[in-house]
Design a protein around this nucleic acid. Structure first.
Lengths: 235, 235, 235, 235
DNA sequence: AATGAATGAGCGTTCATTCAT
DNA sequence: TATGAATGAACGCTCATTCAT
């Protein structure tokens, strides 16, 4: 039953991963434990399905941003940042993602599932960055994207749901946008050198670091480009 | 025994909070479980002491930065950011902090202990920001500090220990410094308005959001100012 | 389905009786568990059918030996012993029969099913013994037959499939034949007395010990004699 | 507690290995399950200790036979056979050993523990055989010993506790002794050739087949020889 | 200060069994 | 004939906790 996943997610959000047990799920669903194991043979199976359910929408969100063709790249970037910051204020995101970061440290499946989402996020950011600041190398764009991702993700603990700074979101996101959009727009490769980055390392054969297998990564990239082109064809 | 705390920390780092049990600690210490319960009546007691042990050094680190009087405020800021980014690359920090963020969602003690550290971090940042950009209001400086904290914290999941981007730290921290130091230096109150922040909210009676009690917060602040002045008096 | 029995037998052989569950059978058959319970309401039902399937051929084997009319009784006996020793070297027999001996200790159905086979084996042995050594009483012949049966059965644990002594089968069966055929040929009732057996106990009304009911035993005996006579009549 | 082992053995004997569960042991001991797991961390640990407890006495029994210096080798052999046949009539042996044979098929620990006993049994038999019939090669003596072991072990299913033939033990053991002692006394290497055993295979470098590691086997052998010599020194 | 013993609960997992479809 | 769903019990195991010594 779909109820199982909903209940499981609720447990994760409200009480954390430690509290997610097949028995607790059964209890809350009002069924016997056998009914839960019938659908999910173990706690891990359950977690994987919950994860898939919870992470799936993010891919679509990023696609929507990309498709918003009435906006400039800069506007899209700002919009994406604001959208992400709003998302981390939801209870679900505030509670769930830190869990995923922890689990990713010990469970390769979770690590890859989470990485997959961040790869998609960076693909989106990357395309915007390339448009805004065409002088940057692939490596520089990717690393900028990681920094943006990290800044947003890290905000979870400070402006997330019921966090002390959550009421300061307006000012906070103004600052974040100012910092990040400005960064993308104004940064020049030469500056990075001056700040301790050695130019020679920006090799053309540089590969995007990821936990995904080369095949999975390529598949994700292909899929993304396919839907991206599809969006570009409209005008 | 001090060994108990060391072992507990090791378990936390290597195997996660789920694996932290009194039995496991006893096992690794080579003592009976009764010996552990003698010192810590429960897992929570144990965690609190581990936390104290692990978070204590951070306060001192921030003090050291502040005391480095041969540097300009800007240099100090950059140095602090680089120092923090290096710290998140240690196994201990990469593994531990996400756990703390999770636990903070469900355990008020952890929440406050962690908040305490971030308050100290922001006090340090705040004093540097005030020096670099004196036009900012208290509220704006604090929120900037939160953004810097968040950016660094969020980096854990991407450039932390054994994370895919960890080898890209040089470029990454160059970008982070460029973004954050520049932000602090160049941001003007008017921009925040233009970016959607309503001027009227920067009230003079604005209070720093924190999970600490007013007393604890004030104590922390007093203590910090005392040691801060002490540092200033030297030259 | 016949597949169910084959799969069940395979589980018994490969993983033992403990591993034989309706679910495991269903799993390996690629059907739902309901499909298995439709045919066999429980593990015991299943076991009984498997037993029948597996024990049936033995009756026929014994018949074949009996019918080999070109051999002397002594040769037949040796041949039977060698045949049985070869059989215990098969994986099926090595793995299955010890299980049956165990189950026979707790399950009367298994006990009788197994006993039925050994009764047939002894009937065969008995007829050969009577021919080789006509001076023996019925009781003595039967007990000799049991000893032969036991010697062969006991060999399972030593020269059975993948047992340490399995490669020594040639020497081993030479010894077994030498011991058992010689025993049958040369033993004299008087010796048994001298060795501690009291003459008086060889009563004419002595009944073959068996787990079978009197009717079942008589039916088996009748059936055997029918086919035996049938075989004798041919020449 | 020792009670745990006694109760476990009782369960094994009365209800079989399947019925041996930590919970059942706890139930019969009148304690909580935690008390059982305190002493034995798992079902397997428990089984191993039970095995050790149950198999230990056999080594001593064989030593006693060897030490009975008032008997001739032939008498000792007969006495050993009778002793073993009496042992298989006990409930413990009748019920337990078939279990061990089964478990040995799937559990290497059990396989070795059981093999250890049979190695000791064969060492004892071997020394008697060597004395009775000095013309036999090492390999022939060993294989004879295996045959004797197998004959006795196989008797379990027929003359064991509550088995149909158990009341026939007097005649049965008379036959067994006649067969086995005579075999040992009268067999000649040439016969084995005639019966299909190729002389050339009795190589001087032939190694006793066993599941034990070479070290364990050697240790067992050394220990046995030490205690054997000790017995010989008396006269 | 630490041990050894035991309690009692919870967990994941597996299973036989039932039953409507 | 067979499936799909669910029950309810048992099992091995791990654990926090307690307590007398």
């Amino acid at each position: 039953m779909g109820q199982i996943l909903d209940v499981s997610l609720d447990i994760l959000i409200e009480s954390g991963y430690e509290a997610l047990s097949l028995r607790e799920v059964a209890r809350r669903c009002g069924v016997q434990i056998g009914a839960v194991t019938y659908y999910y043979k173990g706690r891990n199976d359950l977690l994987q399905d919950v994860l898939n359910m919870v992470l799936a929408p993010y891919g679509e969100k990023f696609g929507a941003i990309r498709a918003a063709s009435d906006l400039s790249a800069e506007q899209k970037l700002e919009r994406l940042i604001r959208l992400l910051l709003e998302d981390i204020q939801t209870k679900k995101t505030t509670r769930l993602f830190p869990h995923l970061w922890v689990l990713a440290n010990h469970d390769p499946f979770v690590a890859r599932a989470v990485d997959r989402i961040y790869v998609l996020e960076r693909l989106t950011l990357n395309s915007l960055i390339a448009e805004i600041n065409p002088h940057l190398s692939h490596q520089e764009r990717e690393t900028l994207a990681v920094f943006i991702s990290a800044s947003v993700a890290g905000s979870t603990m400070f402006v997330g749901f019921e966090k002390p700074w959550s009421t300061e979101l307006p000012l906070y996101s103004a600052i974040a946008c100012r910092a990040l959009v400005d960064l993308v727009r104004t940064i020049k490769p030469e500056e990075l050198e001056a700040l301790g980055w050695r130019q020679g390392d920006a090799k053309p054969d540089w590969k995007t670091p990821t936990l995904l297998t080369a095949e999975d990564f390529q598949a994700l990239l292909d899929e993304w480009e396919a839907s991206s082109t599809e969006g570009d064809e409209r005008p």
